[in-house]
Design a protein around this nucleic acid. Sequence first.
DNA 1: CTTATTTGTTATAGTTACTGTAACAAATTA
DNA 2: TAATTTGTTACAGTAACTATAACAAATAAG
Lengths: 139, 139
Amino acid sequence: MSASTKLSTAVKALCLIAEDNNSPKTSTVISTRTGVNASKLRMLLSMLAKSGIVNSGKGSKGGFILNKDPKDIHLQEIYCSIEDRKAFHLDVQKFLGHHLSIPVQINNYFLDLFAEIQVDIEDKMKKISLQSIIDKLEK
Amino acid sequence: MSASTKLSTAVKALCLIAEDNNSPKTSTVISTRTGVNASKLRMLLSMLAKSGIVNSGKGSKGGFILNKDPKDIHLQEIYCSIEDRKAFHLDVQKFLGHHLSIPVQINNYFLDLFAEIQVDIEDKMKKISLQSIIDKLEK
DNA sequence: CTTATTTGTTATAGTTACTGTAACAAATTA
DNA sequence: TAATTTGTTACAGTAACTATAACAAATAAG
């Protein structure tokens, strides 16, 4: 599952949970509504639980609820919870040349550039709250 | 080869070609200096040739030369020449629900967001010329 | 206490995608 | 005619991803 698919899947799940935050939603219910496998959802949601975005409960009254107001949940936060890998997978090919060779210097140049792009993307995502996405859906 | 690896590899090749644009450089020579397989370089460079960034010549005096001033070659142009796939591979998972279901709406939301990010990245790349990269190497 | 439910995590089998290389026709030069 | 080099296709090997299954641990209910 790519970083961007994970992100959109997580947001789908969070929107469904937000519909009624009084009754926990199980991974099975979310799976039925989103078409995403329940195991996979549990993997994503357990990561969101670890970073305090949702609460999870086991057993017959178990499931997932939001642990924060949707106004206070931002895309960047969700993204960082579910994605270890730096960035949207912007990489360069390693080359074992000496320090001042062109390939090595270009690698460093692009590592810097891709890091900058990553920051830009995360800044953009910091400005987007879960609530703002929910508002757009209700239109 | 990921989009970003392709891009940095192409720039490496172009920088080496730019060193002396009077004598064409063969894929074998560029391969030796970059550590990238010659066949793969030919694939990349043939795409750059199709979009007019380099000229290629076959035979014993053949090889690749730049077809433009490095000041007039921009990263975005290089990127678009070598990459069919839209963007840095930002995707969402398809879901066959009805038109107004949350998963479908979220998919559309993220497709728009990722398209916006793609435009941001390309705008950034439009401002970077091959010459500006070469200048940084000579420092 | 036992049974049912649900998360959290690991494992697994099947498939897809990527990687590096080879191979060779077509074009060019000598 | 022979040597060189691009441009393109093919291919085998490997790595990565996908979807699902499986099950221990925790919780709730009867």
